[in-house]
Amino acid sequence: MSKPRSLALPPRTRAYRLSTARGDFAVLDAAPAPAAVPRHGTVLLLPGFTGSKEDFLALLGPLGDAGYRAVAVDGRGQHETPGPRGRAAYRRKALALDVVAQAAALGDGPVHLLGHSFGGLVARAAAELAPDAFLSLTLLASGPTKVARSQRVRVRALRTAFALLSKERVWQATRWLDSRGEEPGVTDPPEIVAFLRRRWMRTRIAQLAGAGRLILGDPDGTAALGALPMPLHIAYGDEETVWPVQALAAAAARTGAHHTVVAGAGHSPNVSHPEELAARLTAFWDLSAQTRAPRAAAGRNAAEASS
């Protein structure tokens, strides 16, 4: 989960429901700055486990300043996007189909796709399902390998808690656990605490349980990632804790992906280092059209070598 430091909408940003062939999705849509000529393209941003579109608030402005339209989305059952209660609605393919529909509904042709944490798992599934819908794929603090053991324990505990406790009790327990890692005396502003609770209570238990199930059961997808016919980018902070940084570096090397490590950042460079991250992302996207064919060939070679 990312914790936004401010809830203010950046300039040129609209909040609305994006109508797609698979339903309506709550989005934050940031237009490029008028001075950014030419316009460079569109990026679709997918949030992580227990997160939401607001996780990208600090990133939207810098991306727009660089000439990109940036659209952050609540997936089905997340925060302000309604979702079914049934388990089948949150399977990998269903979530991937949603992303393909979102990309199509933006009306800008193929888009750059970025998934943060659990959102990276969904982004990979969408890119595998419909590679022609995306110009590039960025995994932010996310990998094709399994999450760290401590995170697997945490996800299992959360799924068990949902079966035994009310959503309110689970929220209180989660807040207490999160507070143990914060600096003594540091507290979140009341509006951020209220937002985090509202987001938690609005998110479907079925979505949280389904996301946890996918995180725990997702097989190593390095070979499949390397075979994708699009430029790849694996980015994370050097203090990343959810995925082992050694595994992320190895995945980048095996797939031929562009590799970014943000110094001093943890699991959410999108919150802690938005300006630096935006510069790294836009530099990668600016080069994507030129590197698409060579990287696809490198990825196929890496996949064949690993088989």
Rank of each mutant, 00 (worst) to 15 (best):
R17W: 10
Y16H: 07
L113N: 13
L95R: 02
L129T: 06
R149Y: 14
L214H: 07
S272G: 00
A157T: 04
T260K: 13
A66R: 10
K93G: 12
P144W: 13
P131V: 11
G51L: 04
Q102V: 05
K93S: 12
V43S: 06
G181N: 10
A293L: 07
T174F: 15
I205V: 15
A21V: 11
L63I: 07
A88P: 12
G107T: 08
H79A: 10
A141M: 15
A297Q: 03
R169Q: 02
D132W: 04
G51I: 03
V147Q: 10
A289Y: 03
T187S: 10
G226P: 15
A72G: 13
A58T: 00
L216F: 12
K146T: 07
R292N: 14
V261T: 04
T174K: 14
A105D: 00
A211M: 15
D98Y: 08
E191Q: 14
H273M: 14
K146V: 05
S179V: 13
M1G: 14
D178A: 13
D65Y: 10
E304H: 09
S307L: 11
A103Y: 02
D24H: 03
A31Q: 14
P189R: 11
A35N: 08
G217H: 03
S272Q: 05
I192W: 02
S306C: 05
T81I: 11
E168Y: 07
A127L: 14
L287P: 14
L28D: 06
R14G: 12
L63Q: 07
G210P: 01
H273G: 09
G264W: 09
F162M: 04
A35R: 09
D74M: 03
S307Q: 10
S288P: 15
A206V: 03
A250Y: 04
G119S: 00
R213F: 02
G51T: 04
G266L: 10
A126C: 11
